[in-house]
Design a protein around this nucleic acid. Sequence first.
DNA 1: CCATGCTCTGTTGCATACATCAACTGTAAT
DNA 2: ATTACAGTTGATGTATGCAACAGAGCATGG
Lengths: 230, 230
Amino acid sequence: MQQSMATTTQPATPGTDAPLLDRLRRLVVSGTALPGELLAETALAEEFAVSRTPIREALKQLEREGLVEIRPRVGTFVRKPTRKEIFELFELKESLEGLAASLLARRGDVPELRSLAHNVENEREAVRAGDRTAYATLVHDFHRTLVTGADNRKLGEHYELLMNQLAYHRIVTQTLSLPGRLDASMDEHRQILLAIQSKDPLFAELTTRRHISRTRESATIAAFAESDDA
Amino acid sequence: MQQSMATTTQPATPGTDAPLLDRLRRLVVSGTALPGELLAETALAEEFAVSRTPIREALKQLEREGLVEIRPRVGTFVRKPTRKEIFELFELKESLEGLAASLLARRGDVPELRSLAHNVENEREAVRAGDRTAYATLVHDFHRTLVTGADNRKLGEHYELLMNQLAYHRIVTQTLSLPGRLDASMDEHRQILLAIQSKDPLFAELTTRRHISRTRESATIAAFAESDDA
DNA sequence: CCATGCTCTGTTGCATACATCAACTGTAAT
DNA sequence: ATTACAGTTGATGTATGCAACAGAGCATGG
């Protein structure tokens, strides 16, 4: 009856199954699993060396996050947002980032503001060097820092949910490759930074919203060029 | 792939077996299960006449929705939002409803607009009759119609997520019982309606946001009066 | 009297077994 | 050749068993 055994290293992961959910999510948002692809529970269970049960639980969560679609008695498929959904998500994005900018401007001097300034500097450098991939990463960081700096955890959660759903769209449509979009984007980021630094919440919000609106337009154009069904 | 979802009942219910998940969620948002209460899988399984497995899956989803907290190896507990979270949620609410009003104003003449007008009429009646509970329901309907009328499904999903987290707070703090808040609330709804009818998106948005902002203030006051720990 | 370690119960975490049903395939009839 | 249909296959949906762990309660020693 001794329960002092501590030698069993085989079962593993006695705590939370966060890594599993995260890895599954990454599979989808990274584009490793393409839209329409079947995510078979058995295969995933074997691949991740666990039983079907935790896989099922994770898949249900991904469904709730809008990343996959579970067709009962059939299977789980990677979801591809429709054109309308992408449009809706951008409308939401505009609103949420506008809120973030407003809150950040209201907060005043916080470390995230310095991060933003630094980021814009790096963007200028990347543009000068013509490094598109580096710039793409910086854009991602810029928006992420913006939202983080708002110091509103709930906003952050909703924003992440939203961005995960847009992940595939972002991967496919390289909006930054549109002519002139690169410089324009950088300039708009600079304007956002200035607006926030001026500590005018409304001005910061409107500037940010205009930027997202333009981004959306470019994204829509790029999506048209790709001519997916959806 | 022409087979789309068959629209279960609620926009935020993309799932497969909606009934169980919905009933469990209702258990939490309705206040039947109080914050801090343990939701034991075995007990729930027996109560709903199913096995533990589907219960577990549903509970995990509720955790993702922020309604319960799963402490590994201990149990699932009904979550009580902290004061800061409630504040954050109201900030989000203001932004989302502002967006909804803006979109609705842009859409122009749609059936939801008539619903809103009708709702305001009923509110006036309820206020005249002094029926607080009826008015509370109408308020709920008003905001719900506002968001529905925006014709943005993603917005609707995020909004419902948000409102579910605020459900308990709404139940506990009867903000409408504050002196004069009832009449003020009705008047603000009327102003929102007028702004939307004027088809001026920005005006509609600002009017709505001001209303939510005032609601938040009242809610905060009421929350203080209740002096919960959180 | 208090601190500390042990036991014991209750609950979750995961694995596995079985039931059920969708999709496919091969055959036969038109 | 095309369509209808029934058998087969393989997946999911659910139930249940076992093990691990957290926390309460108790006994014991200081």
